[in-house]
Design a protein around this nucleic acid. Structure first.
Lengths: 339, 339
DNA sequence: TCTTCAATAGGAAACGTTTCCATGGTTTTG
DNA sequence: CAAAACCATGGAAACGTTTCCTATTGAAGA
C-alpha cells in the first residue's frame, strides 16, 4: 500500500524539514550538523522506515563495502579460513565475494570475475607466486590487495604464518626418534609455505650435524595426485629402509600418500612414520591418529580481514603495516615410531 | 598518464560520433541500432578501453549480478556445494556473496548481512525449516529465493535431493546382514534430509515386516556434540547387543560418534556396524573404510544456481519450475558386518 | 510525386546519493 | 562595538548509466 514508492533521502528531508545535505550528513555521521537536527533526522528516518540505497551511495562515494576473495576452494583449509573472513567482514560491515581458482586457467577465471566489478579490496591466495601474467594484472588494480601467506612483489602480505619453527621442531622430533631418511613432499618453492618449510627442514638437519638428504625433498604440487606419484616413487626406498618417515606439507598430498600406502599394505607407524600439515577430522580420527602441524585457520581469516580493512580505511598506510605473524602448533600423536 | 580520467559512455559516444543512447543500446545488445553503427561503437569501445561501470548500470537497471548464499560453513558439504555454485554463477555472469549462518543467532546474522544490500537472488540452506521469524523475514523480500534441500512454505526449492531410495536401500542392506537394532542418529524432523530419511528408514523395516525400533530413532542436531551425546546414551545397548548398527545422517554426527567409539575401545565393524551420509576423505581413508550415502555436491551447487538464475531472468516463472531431483548413491564399503 | 510508416538515432531526464559552495546567523576577538 | 571567524544549513551539481521521447531518414505504397 504505502510502499508503492521507494522512500528516499528527499522524503526524509521533507519530513524532517531539513535540506538534502543535512540528512546525508546525519546518516554518515559527518560533521557540520547540530545534535538537535541530527536527532530530528533520525526520528524521521525511523518513522518513515528509510534505508539508504547502497548502490546510489556507492555510485557517489566509490565505496562498495565488498571484498573479493580468491582461493582454491578444494583445499580443506578453505572453509575455516572463509569462516574467519566472513565473520570479521560481517563485523566490519563488508560483504565477502568468493572466487574459486582451484582449476587450471587461473588468470582467465580472475579476469572474468573482476571484469568491470567494483570491490574495495582483495584477499589473494594464489596457487603460485611467480605467475607474471597474474602479477601484472593485480599490479594494474588500484585498490588494496593483501595476500594470505604468499610473498608476491608489490603486494603486501596480510598475514604470514610461522611455519619455520614448527617444521624445525617436527624435523628435530623425527631425528630424535632416530629417523635419518625423512622424505619431504610439498608444493613448489614458488609458494611461501613450502619454501619456508624446506628451509626449516634443512636447518633442522644442519643443527644436528646430520647431512640433509636433498634427494628426498620432493617439490611438486599441492594435490593428491602429486602425493600419490611421489610416494609411489619412494616405495622401494621405504621397503629398503632408506626412507623411514614422510613429512607432507598439505592435506591433499597427505591423502594421496595415504591412499598409496593402503594399496601397498604399508602401515604407519609400523612400516613408515608420518607427519603432515593441517589438523582436521581425518588426522584426528584416523587410527592411529596423525602427528600434525596445526595452523589456526579461523584466526588467519580474521586477521587478514582486519588488515585489509585497515588498508581500505586508511589508504596512506597501504603496504606499511607489518603482516600479522600467525603461530603454528606441533601436535604429537601416534603416527611416528621410535626407531 | 592518459588514464587520469575515467572513460565513460560519453567518451565512447563522442569518439564514435553517435549519441549516448546508441552506445547503451550497443552494449546491451538492444534493438533499434543498425549493424553498421553497432560495429563502429564496438570499435570505439575497444580503442578507448572502455568498461561499463557496473554500479551506474545497477543504479538505473536494478540488476546487480549478485547472489547471496546463506549456509553453515562448518558443514563439510559446504565447500563442494560452494564450488559448484561459484562455477555456475561465474558462467552466467553473477557474483557469489557468502554468509555463514553456522552459529546461533541466525536471524541476526541474516539481517545485518542483508541490511540495505542489493542482490538479484538468494540461495538458502537454513538450519531448520520452522523458524517463523526467518520465514517472515524472507517472505518480505521481493526477489527470487530458492532453497537448497529444504521445504519452506512460500519459498520454492531449487533442488531436492532424493534421500528416500538410498536410505531405504541402506536400511535393507543392514537388515539383510541380520541387523535388527539399528540406531538412526539425525537432525530434527524440521529439516528435509532428516525427515525423508526417517520415513525411508521406517518404510524399509515395514517392507520386511520387521517392527521398526522407534526408540532408536534419535532426533537432535547435525553437530558432533549431538553425535557424542547420542552414542554415549546408546553404549549400554551396544554392549548388550541390543543395538548392532548405527546410521548417522551427517558427517558431523558421524565424527562425534566415531570419537566416542574410540574412547570406549569399540571397533567397527567388529563391535558395531556403521553407515553414514556424505562421502569424503574421512570415510574413504579410514581403515576399515566406511559405507556411505553419497550426494553429488558439486552438481547440487550447479543445479540450484541454474534454477535461481532462470527465476531471476524470467520472473513470471517464479515458483513454477519443479525443483531438480538430485539422485544419491549408496556405496558399500567395509564398515558393516554380517551378523 | 506525395504520403505514410518503420527503423534508426540523439539527447534530456531520471535513478538516489554525496559533495561542494553560498548564505545567514552566532560567537569570538581586539 | 565592529570585524572576523566559525558553524549549521540548504540545495545545485555531479556520479555514469538506461529509458523514453522526439526527430530524421529512407523505403514503401498510392
Amino acid at each position: 500500500m504505502d510502499d508503492k514508492k521507494k522512500i528516499t533521502i528527499k522524503d526524509v528531508a521533507k519530513h524532517a524539514c531539513v535540506g538534502l545535505g543535512t540528512v546525508s550528513r546525519a546518516i554518515n555521521g559527518a560533521s557540520g550538523i547540530s545534535p538537535k537536527t541530527r536527532k530530528r533526522v533520525f526520528e524521521s528516518i525511523k518513522e518513515l522506515g528509510y534505508t539508504p540505497d547502497v548502490i546510489a551511495q556507492s555510485m557517489r562515494s566509490n565505496k562498495y563495502k565488498n571484498i573479493a576473495f580468491f582461493i582454491d576452494i578444494s583445499n580443506v583449509a578453505f572453509s575455516k579460513i572463509a569462516k574467519g573472513i566472513q565473520y570479521e567482514l560481517d563485523n566490519l560491515g563488508y560483504i565477502l565475494s568468493l572466487c574459486d581458482i582451484g582449476d587450471k586457467n587461473v588468470i582467465e577465471k580472475v579476469m572474468t570475475f573482476m571484469n568491470g566489478r567494483k570491490f574495495d579490496g582483495i584477499i589473494l591466495s594464489l596457487p603460485r607466486e611467480d605467475d607474471q601474467e597474474l602479477h601484472q594484472f593485480f599490479s594494474s588494480i588500484k585498490i588494496p590487495i593483501v595476500t594470505l601467506d604468499r610473498d608476491i612483489p608489490d603486494i603486501p602480505a596480510g598475514i604470514t604464518t610461522d611455519y619455520f619453527s614448527s617444521v624445525k621442531k617436527a624435523t628435530h622430533y623425527l631425528l630424535s626418534l632416530g629417523h635419518k631418511g625423512i622424505a619431504l613432499i610439498g608444493g613448489s618453492r614458488h609458494i611461501r609455505p613450502t619454501r619456508v618449510s624446506i628451509d626449516a627442514f634443512q636447518e633442522a638437519y644442519n643443527e644436528k650435524s646430520i647431512p640433509c638428504p636433498e634427494d628426498l625433498i620432493l617439490e611438486g604440487q599441492l594435490t593428491s595426485e602429486f602425493g600419490r606419484r611421489a610416494i609411489y616413487d619412494l616405495l622401494p626406498k621405504i621397503r629398503s629402509g632408506q626412507v623411514s618417515a614422510i613429512f607432507t606439507l598439505n592435506n591433499q598430498i597427505f591423502q594421496g600418500v595415504l591412499h598409496v600406502l593402503r594399496e601397498n599394505n604399508l602401515e604407519y607407524p609400523k612400516d613408515i612414520s608420518l607427519i603432515t600439515f593441517e589438523d582436521y577430522e581425518l588426522t584426528q580420527l584416523l587410527n592411529p591418529s596423525v602427528t600434525v602441524i596445526r595452523r589456526p585457520l579461523l584466526e588467519m581469516g580474521k586477521s587478514v580481514s582486519r588488515i585489509l580493512i585497515k588498508y581500505i580505511e586508511e589508504p596512506d598506510l597501504y603496504g606499511k603495516i607489518a603482516p600479522s605473524v600467525i603461530p603454528t602448533e606441533f601436535i604429537i600423536r601416534d603416527s611416528c615410531k621410535f626407531l
